[in-house]
Design a protein around this nucleic acid. Structure first.
Length: 464
RNA sequence: GGCCGGAUGGCAGAGUGGUUAUGCAGAGGACUGCAAAUCCUUGCACGUCGGUUCGAUUCCGGCUCCGGCCUCCA
């Protein structure tokens, strides 16, 4: 089965045909580094990381670029109100971003260009647009002229007339057309700025992605991803900039957009008090559970973030890790697992159908629990682990998961040595058929969030 | 006002023109000193009104409801 993706450009599920058969190039819009990433920011990261993992499995070489926007008016505002330097804020926020996304098992992109290190490329691109008649200077600004581009609006499927009919366009006096957008704007002395042919200034929002994708992936590349809210205006304007500079037919072939994230049925917002950063969430749930929650809904659908959903993801991981735990002494048979793994690949290749892939993993886990021979176990164990590798879960040992990495609290009231001692005492009581004492110890541990499982090879414990 | 997406069983969530999604929760059973885990069995569905069709949850249209975007929010 070939990889298919829903392409926003065509509004259909298209068979993926790479520009170069052995080298896939993908660009995803990254963070503006002024604050901790919230759970809505994490969705595209996890979704496109999963796609990246799949592509790496299907193709010999993948180049994944994701930008860091470190020049932006929100950053400037944050610096002003906090008294900190812009550099200080962007450096710290970038480090936090890496920490948080690492905790979600998101692989680092191959290239992570920063806007402030690519001002020259942006200026060069803007100059090309001016030379080709697609941009003009006005009142210290450089603006893109949407009227100069015949099919402006193709991605978001809106016409200029419709947008003007919407009547919410900001009409700045220096714009020739209300839909024109800023490529470069002047900076006052107290704001970040760079010298340019149009005076000291800073770039508009969209130009960095056009400049940096062009530099690292070429004028044409395979996949461009991001959240659905970026379709307009951001991605529409990227297309305008890049195709007007490089020519028709250039730029991204497949546009993929993840759906919105809501919290308990409402739009996430600070005023509603349902605004969660990934950092906050990591304090009360394992990263893998957060990641699996994000993958339990198809990326194209709206995702309703709930405590219940997070709990279910954790239970799912409990099930998978338990299945693996039973065969921890059986070496995985990677060569034999190909056929068992195939349905997982089929699901993922069908427009990254992660819920279907997870369903297949449940099937594999069930078969692993029932497997009677070591040969079967070795194959099924490998398939489950490889499937986990594709989805970016099951990355730790079952023991680590059971002993606390999978729990809500991570560090319980009692430490591992104390637990082991109590478990040993209970085992002794059971050996002497003193079940009253054994049950008392079970209860004592249970009240501290420790669950016991008696098995043929002794008693295992895990944190709730 | 314009544009876009969605509506599936108690919950979450795939998919399909006629045949079990899957998981959790529920019911019954096996196993267990008791449990847990695991396994077996099982109940529960496709917003509404029309149309196309031998047959629609699946295609088309109307309606209702929900969500989002409309110049710098993933």
């Amino acid at each position: 089965m070939a990889l298919c993706v829903y392409n926003t450009l065509t509004r259909t599920k298209d068979t993926f045909v790479p520009l170069e058969p052995d080298h896939i190039r993908m660009y995803v819009c990254g963070p503006t580094v002024y604050d901790r990433a919230h759970i809505g920011n994490a969705r595209p990261v996890v979704v496109f990381d999963t796609l990246y993992r799949l592509l790496k499995c299907l193709y010999p070489r993948v180049t994944y670029a994701r930008n860091i926007t470190d020049v932006d008016d929100k950053i400037n505002a944050r610096a002003k109100e906090s008294g900190r330097t812009i550099r200080d804020i962007t450096e710290e926020t970038t480090a936090h971003y890496h920490e948080d996304m690492d905790a979600l098992n998101a692989l680092r992109p191959d290239v992570e260009p920063r806007a402030t290190e690519h001002i020259a490329e942006m200026i060069a691109l803007i100059s090309v647009l001016i030379d080709k008649g697609h941009a003009y200077t006005a009142d210290g600004h450089v603006l893109f002229s949407v009227a100069s581009m015949a099919d402006y609006g193709a991605l978001s499927r809106r016409s200029q007339d419709e947008m003007i009919a919407g009547a919410r366009v900001e009409v700045a006096p220096y714009k020739k057309d209300p839909g024109d957008f800023v490529l470069w704007k002047p900076s006052s002395d107290d704001l970040p700025g760079w010298d340019s042919p149009w005076g000291r200034g800073r770039p508009g929002w969209h130009i960095e992605c056009s400049a940096m994708s062009g530099k690292y992936l070429g004028e044409s590349f395979d996949i461009h991803g991001g959240g659905q809210d970026l379709v307009f205006p951001h991605h529409e304007n990227e297309i305008a900039q890049s195709t007007c500079a490089h020519g028709p037919g250039t730029f991204a072939r497949y546009w993929m957009h993840n759906g919105y994230l809501m919290v308990e049925g409402e739009k996430m917002s600070k005023s509603l008090g349902n605004f969660f950063t990934v950092h906050d969430l990591l304090a009360k749930a394992p990263g893998e559970a957060i990641r699996l929650t994000l993958l339990a809904t198809h990326y194209h659908q709206p995702l309703n973030w709930t405590d219940e959903g997070l709990l279910q993801a954790r239970q799912t991981l409990d099930r998978f890790y338990t299945a693996l735990s039973r065969v921890s002494e059986v070496p995985a048979d990677d060569d034999g697992a190909e056929a068992v793994l195939q349905p997982v690949l089929d699901a993922l290749q069908d427009d990254l159908n992660t819920p279907a892939a997870i369903a297949v993993m449940h099937d594999i886990a069930g078969r692993l629990n029932k497997a009677e021979t070591r040969g079967e176990q070795a194959i099924l164990k490998s398939a489950l682990q490889q499937a986990g590798g594709l989805l970016g879960i099951l990355a730790m040992t079952p023991e680590a998961w059971r002993r606390g990495a999978g729990s809500a609290t991570k560090e319980g009231a009692v430490n591992d040595a104390e637990i082991d001692a109590l478990v040993a005492a209970r085992t002794a009581a059971r050996a002497g058929r003193n079940f009253a004492e054994a049950d008392r110890l079970r209860k004592e541990l249970s009240s501290n969030g420790i669950l016991l499982e008696d098995g043929p090879n002794g008693t295992l414990w895990r944190r709730e």
